[in-house]
Design a protein around this nucleic acid. Structure first.
Lengths: 191, 191, 191, 191
DNA sequence: TATGAATGAGAATTCATTCAT
DNA sequence: GATGAATGAATTCTCATTCAT
């Protein structure tokens, strides 16, 4: 009842919530949403099935919860030094994209799956598109600064290229990722 | 002896088989493999559930059946004029890719889903990769003929770019497809 | 339409009927009635599923048909020389039982299965019991002739012993059948 | 933390598990394994279909579970006084066999059915044979102690005889069981 | 808050039987 | 008589969700 206990409780709750989200996220990305049972999520999270329903009303809510959780994470990492030149920014952005892909392939896999799934969860696709839109806008600015004739189109193109690379990397496993990065750098004069 | 002539029977079988494949394909692409029940497939095909199992041993076999059915279709369209120049071939290939995407978006959606699905069906991923490999090899030849320094890498890049475009087109719906095509044409000097 | 054709037809019908019965019998004995599908019976008999239903109204009727068919076969083989002594008859009976078991193990397996199955087919158990009763009566006479104090009981005992041996032989596969026969012969002074 | 005490939970589980085993066992013995649906088992046990799968992974596992459950029961009853003479032991063994047959006819029926079923459950036949082997070994020792020339063969013979009697008793219902027991006692000089 | 036994709706699959030809 | 495509009811099994404790 004391405020200290309340805080401790709150932390414990957050921790449990996070362990559920992490377990579910990994499993959904690896196996797909439909192929992952709540029992499996509970096992991976090291808690009971019933407890998940204390934190998330349903499996769909859990999916939504995952997305919001990781959207926050993703947004934090983009923050860059405003003193960087446009070219430097572009390089960092591309680097970030590739390292993101190799370090946390699950996140990409997960969001691709959601993107291809029609209306699994109302609002989820919209959220993903917004997230993507944010990255594209950053690129748009960069390409404009670099003097590209059609900066918006160019940013869409680069995003698509990187998505295509990610898609291939995630399904085929001996993919020449490093050489593709070099190719892109060369194309944008970043070498 | 036979109730129907052999030919008539064969035609009947082909027709039924195709109606199953078409129904299943559309539904799998729209809703995903796991989210589509055999009952739904049967309803869409206008037949009984049991009959599907007369033609396909299991849901997985049905998935495999769909893939082989459409692979044949795709292969037929690729046949081009051998007298074409490399540049003309490249243009045709890109054109085909785009028209394929707009005309039969489901096929792409379907194969992306399969690619992301870890091991839904043993052998299916391999088959898809082989199919992709075939297209890439065609491009590889073209880029070599066009004198590119790294024809293989270039073909991978173009394939990825077009996959990324397809992916985006299939999830966002107001996508500047025509302008993207122009951009690609320009990049490869095809305008 | 000519009588000759009629006969030929009749023979053909009998032959088809028999091939169905034989296929079904073997399969029912090997796999059990419930685990054998009509499709499998048709395949084994080398005919179509539909044709079985021309000869037998249902799967149960087929089962009944099998039994009657083999009851006839079994009855024919028992006929022995009336001039034999009781001891000779007993020896022949035991010999016949053992050779029947090794030559046509399926028949025994089949009838055991039916015997243990409560009421799969009305009347089938009764028919099997009658058949068994016939054999026991033959033995009864023999034991009476041999001067046994309780010939009926003795015949029941011997029948049971041979059934028990058969049962074991059919489930375990390295069973000392020959030595068991010797033991029985010795017990009844037939050596 | 736990909703029920661990002990209470364990008891609940045991009770439910047992009610499933008992229901399934009775039904399998009465109607046969294949002819008994899981729905029927659930109804008889007074629980939902799904719950059976909480305790047994499949119908086959349930069958195996039944066997192990009743094997334990059987083993407990065999424990006899080591001070008994061989003849007394033999008598007790035969008595036990007959009382087991009349008291729990289902168990015998069940194991006979399994024995005849080719490969319904991998490992089950082996387990049954092992169980039978155990009884035969006990008899083997007794017959050796009693000075029989071929104790092993004699034990097989007696086992077969009692199996044959059981088989007959289970299918015919007015079977002279008491008199058969007397006959066996007389044969082995136990009167 | 936490557990996991229990439920029930629905999924995949099988199969005896029918029927158009 | 003969075929085998087609049906539909039943069967095994799964799983999100609830609930007593």
């Amino acid at each position: 009842m004391s405020p200290r206990t309340k805080t401790a409780n709150e932390q414990l709750k957050q921790k449990t919530r996070q362990s559920i989200v992490e377990a579910a996220f990994t499993l959904f990305a690896e196996r797909g949403y439909a192929q992952t049972s709540m029992t499996l999520v509970a096992q991976r999270a090291g808690i009971s099935k019933g407890l998940i329903y204390h934190y998330f009303q349903s499996k769909q809510e859990l999916l939504l919860g995952i997305f919001h959780f990781y959207k926050q994470q993703g947004a934090q990492q983009l923050a860059w030094d405003e003193s960087d030149s446009a070219a430097q920014k572009l390089r960092k952005l591309i680097e970030l994209n590739f390292s993101y892909l190799t370090d946390q392939p699950q996140i990409r896999k997960f969001s691709f799956q959601i993107a291809l799934q029609a209306e699994v969860v109302e609002g989820l696709k919209k959220a993903i598109e917004q997230n993507k839109g944010y990255w594209e806008k950053q690129m748009h600015e960069i390409f404009r600064a670099l003097g590209y004739a059609e900066p918006e189109l160019e940013s869409i193109k680069l995003t698509c290229l990187m998505d295509g690379i990610a898609l291939r990397y995630l399904s085929v496993h001996d993919y020449p990722l490093a050489r593709m990065k070099q190719l892109i750098f060369k194309e944008y004069g970043l070498l």
